[in-house]
């Protein structure tokens, strides 16, 4: 009769086998590259949000001599929505689970992050796309009125809105696709692992 412990020697042989030579410099390079990518990614998001906020403020209250109340209200809404979006994106990375380096903690952290992402993507159209499209449409309309003095938008301007609408619709379906093919399967796998760990 063969027992599990009989395989200890076989396993020890496998862990002693190493055909690879670790290149320490490439590891350090990889770490530097990953850190740089993370920093660049966060910086782009932060700079994008700050740029949106500052350009809206500068355009509305500095560049235009006497902005209309409508323009000012739209500018405030646009700034508020940019701050809200930035907080939302940054919030996804924060988790309540403490990382004690165990597999269970790592799984819980990943599950928490993925659940937040799934929740955000499920409501993306309602929480982000529709409000953002409405605000941008109104903001561009306010700019149009300020610059031209006309209330009736031109054909070219309306085509611009149409293109913008098409882009937002594309974003909606792109996110749906991402949600169904990437985030939900990943979350399922994590649930399965946690179930195995608990079982």
């Amino acid at each position: 009769m063969m027992e599990l412990d009989d395989l200890k020697t076989t396993w020890k042989k496998e862990v002693k086998m190493t055909t690879k030579i670790a290149d320490f410099n490439s590891i350090k390079c990889e770490v530097r590259k990953l850190d740089k990518q993370a920093k660049v990614s966060w910086s782009i998001e932060a700079i994008g949000a700050l740029f949106g906020i500052f350009s809206t403020a500068i355009f509305t209250w500095i560049w235009i001599d006497e902005p209309a109340i409508f323009t000012q209200v739209i500018a405030v809404i646009l700034i508020a929505s940019l701050i809200y979006s930035a907080r939302l994106f940054f919030g996804i990375q924060q988790t309540e689970t403490r990382d004690d380096l165990t597999l269970l903690a790592k799984l819980n952290i990943q599950i928490e992050k993925r659940e937040k992402e799934v929740k955000m993507l499920r409501n993306f159209a309602v929480v982000q796309l529709i409000p953002m499209f409405s605000i941008m449409t109104l903001a561009s309309y306010a700019v149009y009125i300020e610059l031209t003095g006309r209330v009736m938008p031109s054909i070219a301007f309306m085509i611009g809105w149409g293109v913008c609408l098409a882009y937002f619709i594309f974003l909606h379906f792109y996110n749906r696709n991402h949600l169904n093919n990437k985030f939900l399967p990943a979350l399922e796998q994590l649930y399965e692992l946690k179930k195995q760990l608990d079982g």
Binding site: E14, K16, K20, F24
Partner: peptide, 11 residues
């Protein structure tokens, strides 16, 4: 460490 335990990581 990597030299000593490379096989374990690979496994």
């Amino acid at each position: 460490l990597i030299k000593d335990h490379g096989g374990r990581i690979l496994a």
